[in-house]
């Protein structure tokens, strides 16, 4: 499994991650990222890494569990 982490203080609500992977990321009413699934199977890692990389402020990280 890969672990999905978000730095809520860095997040600016640009929402690129939600558009790239709305099964893993959402955004709250204050415009802060919500991680819907904190762990994703290895098979999904490339797609979620791509989604994390669309963050303009590098607030997202996909790490090894």
């Amino acid at each position: 499994m890969a672990v999905v982490k978000a730095d809520l203080a860095l997040c600016q609500g640009y929402a690129n991650c939600v558009v790239a992977a709305d099964d893993v990321f959402d955004i709250d009413d204050d415009g802060v990222v919500l991680v819907l699934r904190g762990e994703v199977p290895e098979s999904e890692r490339p797609r979620i890494v791509d989604a994390a990389r669309t963050c303009p402020v590098s607030a997202l990280e996909v790490a090894d569990s």
Binding site: L8, A9, C11, D26, D28, D29, D30, G31, V32, V33, L34
Partner: peptide
């Protein structure tokens, strides 16, 4: 439902 992370 209103959701917030409480980060703001």
């Amino acid at each position: 439902p209103r959701t917030t992370t409480g980060a703001r």
